[in-house]
Write a protein that binds this DNA or RNA. Structure first.
Lengths: 137, 137
DNA sequence: CTAGCTGCAAATCCTTTGCAAGAAA
DNA sequence: TTTCTTGCAAAGGATTTGCAGCTAG
């Protein structure tokens, strides 16, 4: 529902623009995190979106905690909706394809670590790396 | 002992050079993973090492499994000795300082995931993010 | 109208490469 | 000598920025 996204933008003090709505739609319907370039390529015709605009929108969304950003080992940044936040991935070392894993055994560990290290822990990143079925051939 | 590192290089079919020995020494004595630039800055006077040489040496070391490379959220690559491999970190979201955490509850999870996803899992990356004691002020 | 968005081109940051000179075996 | 390493400068890919025009409110 595009109406919901308009509200989301309004509540974040952001103007409602076609680009922003389309990026939201896209990320909401994507089964995997996307790079800025993937988003740009998907939307450039439909919306004639520019790459730098894509980066700018994603960056604002990150500040407003609408999306979160992962740094992939391929040194590209991957973006996904914030509400799907607590997910982890298996990443193919050949093609960089990502697959979700459900269930996270780590949250409990966090408070223990806070005591041990003095860090104020705000989150964690867990990624498994391997070869996906296709790349195993 | 620099003699050991000479053997290490010889066994990897690499010529023994001042730059390589100094980078090995440095990483062995560093308590945290280092970026190519940090290594370069530390060694440029002592060894008049060039940035691209640093990258090249680190890249060869990675191929030969002498070091491993992490991609940090600051989009810089961090290098450490391979033998210290199975470590995870807490990373300060302000200053990017890294602290080791001992003990890894995840290895068991891997085989379960292999069955579920069809991926051939070769490793994992686990990083906790938060604010280090200094940056909490 | 005004603040906030956008496109475009140029700039920046990290990393890689081409090439010719230099050092190890 | 032969092969591998290096320094330098230039190129590369991902991301950011300056600026002038545009658009939502």
């Amino acid at each position: 529902m595009s109406r919901m996204n308009e509200t989301l933008l309004r509540e974040s003090n952001l103007k409602i623009t076609k680009n922003r709505l389309q990026i939201l739609e896209l990320l909401q319907h994507s089964s995997a995190p996307m790079t800025a370039e993937e988003i740009y390529i998907t939307l450039r015709e439909k919306s004639n979106l520019n790459v730098s605009t894509a980066y700018r929108i994603l960056s604002v969304f990150e500040d407003k905690k609408i999306v979160i950003k992962h740094q992939g080992c391929d040194s590209k940044a991957y973006y996904q909706m914030f509400n799907e936040t607590h997910k982890h991935y298996i990443i193919c070392s050949e093609c960089n394809k990502r697959v979700d894993i459900t269930n996270c055994p780590l949250c409990e560990l966090e408070s223990k670590l806070e005591k041990e290290t003095g860090y104020q822990i705000t989150g964690h990143r867990l990624e498994f790396v391997g070869k996906c079925p296709q790349c195993q051939k």
